Computed example of a mutant assay.
Amino acid sequence: MKFRYFKHDDCGVCKAILPKVENVAKKYDIEIEIIDTKKHPDIAAQKLIFTVPVLIVEHENKELNRWVRNFSIQDLEEETKYYLERI
Rank of each mutant, 00 (worst) to 15 (best):
M1N: 04
M1T: 07
K2R: 13
R4Y: 10
Y5P: 04
F6Q: 06
F6I: 07
K7V: 05
K7D: 02
K7T: 07
K7C: 06
H8Q: 12
H8S: 06
H8W: 12
H8D: 13
D9C: 02
D9F: 06
D10L: 13
C11H: 02
V13G: 01
V13N: 04
C14A: 04
K15F: 05
A16Y: 06
A16R: 11
L18T: 03
L18Q: 09
L18G: 02
P19T: 10
K20C: 09
K20P: 05
K20R: 15
K20H: 12
K20Y: 08
E22G: 04
N23F: 08
V24K: 04
A25E: 07
K26G: 09
K27V: 07
Y28L: 07
Y28V: 08
Y28H: 15
Y28F: 15
Y28R: 06
D29N: 15
D29C: 08
I30H: 04
I30V: 13
E31S: 12
I32E: 09
I32H: 07
I32M: 13
E33K: 14
I34E: 11
I35V: 15
I35L: 14
I35S: 14
D36T: 07
T37Q: 06
T37E: 03
K38Q: 14
K39R: 14
H40K: 15
H40W: 13
H40R: 15
D42T: 11
D42A: 12
I43G: 13
A44L: 12
A45E: 14
A45H: 10
K47Y: 15
K47E: 14
I49L: 11
I49D: 09
I49T: 05
V52D: 00
V52L: 01
P53I: 01
L55Q: 04
L55S: 02
L55A: 03
I56R: 03
I56L: 11
V57T: 12
E58P: 00
E58G: 00
E58Y: 03
H59Q: 10
E60T: 03
E60A: 08
K62C: 03
E63D: 10
L64R: 00
R66S: 09
R66Q: 10
W67F: 15
W67E: 08
V68D: 01
F71D: 09
F71I: 03
S72W: 01
S72C: 07
D75Y: 10
D75Q: 13
D75G: 04
L76Q: 02
E77D: 14
E78R: 09
E79L: 05
E79M: 08
E79F: 10
T80L: 04
Y82P: 00
Y82S: 09
Y82G: 01
Y82N: 12
L84N: 01
